[in-house]
Design a protein around this nucleic acid. Structure first.
Lengths: 230, 230
DNA sequence: TTCAGAAGATGACAAATGTCATAGTACGCC
DNA sequence: GGCGTACTATGACATTTGTCATCTTCTGAA
């Protein structure tokens, strides 16, 4: 699949690239390169100048920002079909987030020239990108409210439900996307020990079950009630 | 100024409307209406269907979201030149935030038809809106990191510096935008009592000075050091 | 001008969360 | 198969933050 054409890429249906014309897609296809990343490898770091965007074909990347106290805050998890780095390319700024693979990944790198040309000539494409960004912005606002108004326990519960809804569970009932305890704490915005304690607590109460780092949801209803504040 | 034309509006220079053509601006000008709001009056509420966007000509509006625990989280303060409600209009969703005046305001209401038509036909305009939204998204990401990684004290200090940098101070050295203690706590995401305590503390330490609800910055350097973590 | 209600301030205490120390456990590598 | 390193887990304690009660101060309307 290494040399497959964008025109035939199914992933494309899920992002703004679907608004490109056939000719535009051909150009993108000719200029794109494919890249494989192993779990833990960075796509780019905060502050890097991005010469294009990355379209995720497989795997998951965490987008995070280092704070003054030395902790990483994970702002978003990007998965199959999502485009990473558009914000920086559009604003012509260096990346404000780091992107690191949390599972093995396959991504397409699309040089910014292809993107910029299309942005200036194809209003449908621009509008499509705009709609996506509007959606991201709403999600970001929701995260702000959660961060400031919910307890750590509620946020951990919410994170598990999010992981289930967005990445699913395997045949044994474990979340498919397995994050380290540290990553979980960085999503939730808390100390690793606090996250671990809450996980232990949830386990005791029968809300979840674990096997190694794998976590499975046992009582979705109660978790949801917890998130909503009983 | 009630019936002034968008073509001559200076405010426009600061937002995406500057990318509109003369003809497009004329249409907008013909369909727009002007509205005055007194401090405390709502522009719209969370969940409202917006039939257009609001361009702020004067005054400041808080954009906030009610959380399950009954507290309002202020996500953004919009001032002269900013456009409110674009996200909802673009995504064709009802508003996810409430907008309430925190000072007397004058705004122009622009029906969404004018916006949508231009979005579909003028790539420069769409791109300009996109750039603005990219900027907003970056700011939102920064807020997420601040909320989760900084202490309440740091966030209060940061809020004061933000108020000074964005709204300025009067001849007596007080912040021009005066927020109630409750609004401050809703910006920072904390209990009102906590915000008040920290304000008292800052005053004792000579970082700020107050007169009624007015607050002035006395030691910007130390406040900044506090924000950066000493 | 006065008075009522709102906003601000502060103490006392409870609850949530972070930090540090330490121990157990898993997993890749040779 | 063993070993070292990194991850997970838990206790003890400090710190931060929230909650409730109470008091004071401001402000706007009659």
């Amino acid at each position: 699949m290494e040399n497959s054409r964008c025109e035939n890429c199914i992933i494309r249906q899920f992002n703004s690239l679907r608004a490109m014309s056939r000719e535009e897609l051909k150009k993108v296809s000719d200029s794109k390169t494919t890249k494989r990343l192993k779990k833990g490898e960075p796509l780019f770091e905060e502050g890097d100048k991005l010469n294009g965007v990355y379209c995720v074909r497989d795997g998951v990347s965490k987008l995070s920002k280092l704070s003054a106290n030395g902790k990483d805050q994970i702002v978003k998890l990007a998965t199959k079909g999502e485009v990473i780095g558009q914000r920086s390319v559009i604003a012509e700024e260096s990346a404000n987030l780091s992107a690191v693979a949390v599972s093995d990944m396959e991504v397409c790198f699309i040089p910014k020239e292809s993107i910029n040309t299309t942005l200036q000539s194809n209003p449908n494409f621009t509008l499509e990108v705009l709609r996506h960004m509007a959606h991201d912005l709403k999600e970001a606002d929701d995260v702000i409210v959660n961060m400031s108004q919910k307890t750590v326990k509620q946020r951990v519960a919410e994170a598990f439900l999010y992981l289930k809804n967005n990445f699913g569970e395997d045949e044994d009932g474990y979340l498919i996307l397995t994050l380290s305890r540290e990553d979980i704490s960085n999503v939730v915005g808390t100390a690793t020990e606090s996250a671990i304690r809450i996980i232990s607590d949830f386990k005791k109460k029968g809300l979840i079950h674990t096997s190694g780092k794998k976590i499975g949801i046992r009582d979705q209803k109660k978790l949801q009630e917890l998130v909503d504040g009983f």
